[in-house]
């Protein structure tokens, strides 16, 4: 069979590779090249400095919390949007993408205003002793906002695709609803939940715009790594900024590979399921 009946393979692949190399791959390798002017010990000293370590703690801690919040509530929202009828559902469904559409700076100043001591939400939280704006908790709020759609949007199509037969089978075999959920439904949607969680986490650790307004940006306490890169740049410490950027880039790569690995695992797992009965029938 001749697979190349269609024209334009060379042209389209060529355009893609040239554009990708010039715009993305070469510039990113320039970052690694620039940091190679540092010796390994110098690099290590910058990457593991006190302020850098504190910034990783804040960045990863807040991102992890935000991604967990989104995994839990995203699952509830996705389930509600697919399974339960309620008025205004289409409107709510469209609104879920707001964090993708709303510029992060707008989200940042708005959340800072809402959660400040005199804001609509902060006003009710501060008497309870809960300070959100200008504390690490504010970072969690901002990161939860900007990564909110990932879990919902990766789960929705998967929940839609669950065949009712498997739930009916579980029920008719005597499983309770809780049992059906934990043993049948949850395993089916778990890879998508994990993908959404990883995407949300990966988006959150790189976030800058929304966080800086609500974080308070105190070194060692509420300073995220992207902000530390910026403040090093503002002090003309380009080498220090580059070293930290390399750390961030490496982590981004790992997370991207992680997402791919999860999807590969999920796809192969399902393949195994489909092959099972076929083999049995032979």
């Amino acid at each position: 069979m001749n697979k190349r009946v269609l024209p334009g393979f060379g042209l389209s692949l060529g355009v893609t590779l040239v554009y990708l190399s010039l715009l993305i791959l070469l510039p990113l390798s320039g970052l690694v090249f620039k940091s190679s002017s540092l010796s390994l010990t110098q690099f290590w000293d910058i990457a593991s400095g006190e302020r850098a370590l504190a910034s990783y703690r804040v960045t990863f801690g807040a991102s992890l919390l935000a991604a967990l919040i989104n995994a839990l509530f995203g699952l509830i929202v996705a389930w509600m949007l697919v399974r339960y009828p309620f008025p205004g559902k289409r409107l709510v469904d469209s609104l879920v993408d707001l964090p993708f559409a709303l510029p992060t700076a707008v989200a940042g100043i708005t959340l800072a205003t809402l959660y400040a001591g005199n804001g609509w939400i902060g006003r009710h939280l501060e008497p309870l002793g809960l300070k959100v704006a200008f504390t690490p908790l504010g970072i969690v709020v901002a990161l939860t906002f900007i990564s909110l759609p990932f879990v919902v949007r990766t789960l929705q199509p998967v929940i839609e695709d669950i065949e009712p037969e498997i739930e009916e089978a579980a029920a008719s075999l005597g499983a309770s609803r809780l049992h059906t959920f934990t043993r049948v439904l949850f395993p089916a949607i778990f890879p998508a939940l994990l993908t959404g969680f990883t995407l949300a986490f990966s988006r959150a650790i790189g976030e800058y715009g929304s966080v800086i307004f609500i974080a308070g940006n105190m070194p060692l306490i509420s300073e995220i790594t992207p902000l530390l890169i910026i403040s090093k740049l503002e002090q003309y410490d380009v080498v220090g900024a580059t070293a930290l950027a390399c750390v961030m880039l490496a982590i981004s790569f790992l997370l991207l590979l992680g997402v791919n690995a999860i999807q590969w695992w999920a796809a192969n797992r399902h393949q195994g399921d489909h092959q099972g009965p076929e083999r049995a029938s032979q």
Partner: peptide
Amino acid sequence: LPFAVSPVVVGLVFLLI
């Protein structure tokens, strides 16, 4: 890849070039 890289890192990359 551009989805995964922090925007700040992207800006820095082109500053370095």
